[in-house]
Each structure stands twice: as structure tokens, then as C-alpha cells.
Nucleic acid binder design. Structure first.
Lengths: 137, 137
DNA sequence: GTATATGCAAAACTTTTGCATCCTT
DNA sequence: AAGGATGCAAAAGTTTTGCATATAC
């Protein structure tokens, strides 16, 4: 779990906005946030942090490797704390709920596909879209 | 390969802009286009079609099932003719070249992962990011 | 004290839309 | 002739940036 130490190691000063944003990402009841989600959480917690700062900080966190940015359908970025354990995502198109999953075989086949095409794999994103358990009831 | 017949079947009138945009998607030396790519191709071909029309038509084609829209990293949509044969994509982060690939086992495991989580799969996107063969030389 | 970070407002970008006019059937 | 499509310009939505002020070290 990232903390102020991680900020320093990333060359980022330990400022109040950064700590507050980190707290939202760590302690929220969700793991996946749009920038607006983060901003609203801060407002609700009584924190007065500019929207521009939220974006700046999230981008800095992303560059520092603390946060992952996803480009799901819908045109808005979704941010998530990088816990170091890679996983993929199922996104409910109705309620926007995000479920994480992992399949070792899929990872292996991706690497194999990349090698086969002489492609130097750096990263990947696998998003499943559909209806989550709650929304099919 | 879609044609004016497909337009009619989709409830879309056979208009010059639609035919021209279809022609770009079919006959370009690439298969993957941003809206701007399409617009520029039209300009180069001497066609005077509004940018807004390009977006409108691409969206209509998407809804009609003629075209797929991808959300790669970078924040701009990428469009591709839907040839009916599902495939995934490797995107070169240096030259933006897009390579298609398909792995039946990955498809199977995705379905299995969805079922395991009681998730009704509708669609998915798998993008590999890295350096293509040309860019690692 | 110095360098870096933040707030605010404005800009940049992509994509969509309102409306008058034009085209297809 | 009638309904749908296009062009233009303006709007909408997300994300970034310039600059003066404030903060961390």
C-alpha cells in the first residue's frame, strides 16, 4: 500500500493534496475511480482540492508507478492503485461495476502471440464488457 | 466487404459521404483509422466532407455493425471495418502500427472467467502494447 | 530561501449537436 | 413532396496548461 515514503521515492513532495488523493484511492469502498469520482470523494470529505490538481496528481502517480490508468469504453479514464498484482477487468455496462480477474493461461498466450509476431510486449489491457451478476437478476 | 446494399439494410440512405467514407475504410493501405485519418484521406482524395459528418457516419456505421470502434491508449477512437472475423490487436507505442491476432484459447478462457464470475459477457477488448518488429530493429 | 506544488481560469482536444439547407427516394 | 442527411458553427465533455500565489524542505 503506497504511502508518503513512496511519494518521496518518486521524487514527489509530501503535500496535503497528494496524501488526500492517495487516501481516497486506498480507503474508498471501490478500487476504480474516474478523476471526477476522486474529486467528489475529496469534496465529501471536506477537502478543497482543485480538479486540475486531481488530474495532475493522478498523472504523476501514474508516471511514478503508483497508479494504473484504464481506458474503458465511455471516454473517461479510470484510475486504480497499482497493487503490483496484475489483473484484468470485467466492466458492467449497466452499473459500471468493475470486477478484477486473473487467468495465467491468458497471460501465457498473450506472450506467445507477441513473440510469434516479433512484437516486444510492454503492457496490455484486457477488458470484458457485459452484465454483472447483480444486473442480470 | 460492405457496400451500398449494406447501407440500405442498415436503414441508411445511399449518400455520397457514406459511400466515400466506406471506400476509405475498404481501400486504404491501413485497416485502422482515427476519425481524423478518415477525414484527411477524404481531403487528399479531393472530397469535401465535413468533419462532423465523418463522426456521424462512423457512429452510424458502428451502430449498424459495419464498423468497430476501439479505445486504445491516447484518448482517440480508432475505427475499423468489421469483417466479421473477431481478432485482437497489438499496438506499437512508437509508430502506432496495429497488428491483428487471434488466439482461440484466449477466447475460451475469457468466456470461462466470465462464467466463473457470473458475468454475462457481451463484448471484450484485448490490446497488447509494445514495440512492433520494425521499431525494435 | 528555493524549488516545487496548487488554485484558478483559460485552453486544448475529441466528439456531439442544433439548425438551416440540400439530397435521396 | 417528405424525410432524412449534410455543413457549419457552436457546444459539450474530458484533460491539460499558464501563471501568480502558496507550501514543503
Amino acid at each position: 500500500m503506497p504511502n508518503s515514503q513512496d511519494l518521496k521515492e518518486a521524487g514527489l513532495k509530501t503535500t496535503l493534496p497528494r496524501l488526500r488523493i492517495l487516501a481516497v484511492l486506498e480507503n474508498g469502498n471501490q478500487r476504480h475511480f474516474t478523476a471526477e469520482d476522486v474529486y467528489k470523494s475529496l469534496l465529501e470529505a471536506g477537502e478543497d482540492i482543485a480538479f486540475a490538481t486531481v488530474y495532475r496528481v493522478l498523472t504523476q502517480f501514474e508516471n511514478a508507478g503508483l497508479v494504473l490508468r484504464h481506458n474503458f469504453e465511455g471516454g473517461r479514464s479510470v484510475f486504480e492503485l497499482d497493487d503490483g498484482e496484475h489483473h484484468d477487468h470485467m466492466v458492467c455496462v449497466k452499473c459500471n461495476n468493475v470486477t478484477e480477474f486473473y487467468d495465467a493461461e491468458i497471460e501465457v498466450r498473450q506472450k506467445a502471440a507477441a513473440e510469434k509476431h516479433n512484437f516486444e510486449l510492454q503492457d496490455h489491457s484486457l477488458y470484458l464488457y457485459g452484465l454483472c451478476g447483480n444486473c442480470t437478476k
